[in-house]
Design a protein around this nucleic acid. Structure first.
Lengths: 151, 151
DNA sequence: TTAATAAAGGATATGTAGGTCTATTATTTG
DNA sequence: CAAATAATAGACCTACATATCCTTTATTAA
């Protein structure tokens, strides 16, 4: 009875970030990666991951090439600039950064709900964190054995 | 295609917080409130709100009395101590405060995912905010016209 | 002691995030 | 060009959060 899901990021977004970080780890090696490999390396369902990667492509976060020798990657000149915020925005849009914590539609800075001010502080810090963190930075930790992307 | 829900709190939790804040606003006036009134005042589905209030009762956050003149309330001697954290814990448990941001099961302080350290900072700040915010404090803002609980 | 009121609780329905399947399109190489 | 490889795309399925319905239990007061 009444089990509520409670995660900061949606599952979709979790996969998206993991995928982007993995792609970054391979793109620094100038490797393109197939959907199959991404799904395997981040332990995600392949078909679903396909949809997520498509969104990242449409959002300009990653690029894709069809055919044999094709695959997904982050462009070399973009690598240093792709942030977690871009990934989240491409997948979920900016709702996470603007929506009322209590789910109230007319809540905003001018007409705030009672939790607004305190909530905004946290939400802004989350956004700052995501904006100032690059996927390639996170991928480096994996190389150093200070992190992993699969279960 | 691929629409992801992206909210910090589950809908259930949003209703729960709004309900608790409304109950606080009335409990300072020594008023007990019926389910119907709660649902009306926080603009939530009545039957569903019933389940949520039951959880808050079981979690010891609020109390209930049956029969005519019955209703829900926060005990007078508890009013100053009921925090948003307690409400969230009663409804969703502590997952929000412990789960990996990337959804990785074995991620923890000792064996962190690449996002762990930065994520933990935000998550802890969120928990601190919830722990240091009482529902009665938020209810005061409504009285002062500095907030609302319904759409 | 019965009628009215209100919460509790179980069973059931709905909507949407999450996930799958299959056909199509693009590209490469022999 | 044909065969193989890989992404794209749309339709479809599933599970669970969200929501409803209805019966039961507790309490009050006339």
């Amino acid at each position: 009875m009444l089990k509520a899901q409670v995660t900061l990021f949606s599952k979709t977004c979790e996969y998206g970030i993991r995928a982007a970080v993995y792609l970054a780890s391979q793109s620094v090696l100038s490797r393109k990666v197939s959907l199959k490999e991404v799904a395997k390396e981040i332990d995600s369902p392949e078909a679903y991951t396909s949809k997520i990667l498509q969104k990242l492509v449409k959002g300009g976060v990653i690029v894709s090439e069809k055919g044999p020798t094709g695959g997904f990657s982050i462009e070399a000149n973009q690598l240093a600039y792709v942030t977690l915020e871009q990934v989240v925005l491409a997948i979920d849009g900016n709702e996470l950064f603007v929506k009322c914590g209590l789910g109230l539609k007319q809540c905003n800075d001018k007409a705030p709900c009672p939790m607004h001010v305190k909530f905004k502080v946290i939400r802004d810090e989350l956004q700052d964190m995501l904006r100032s963190t690059t996927v390639v930075e996170l991928s480096k930790r994996i190389d150093e054995g200070l992190g992993f992307l699969k279960n």
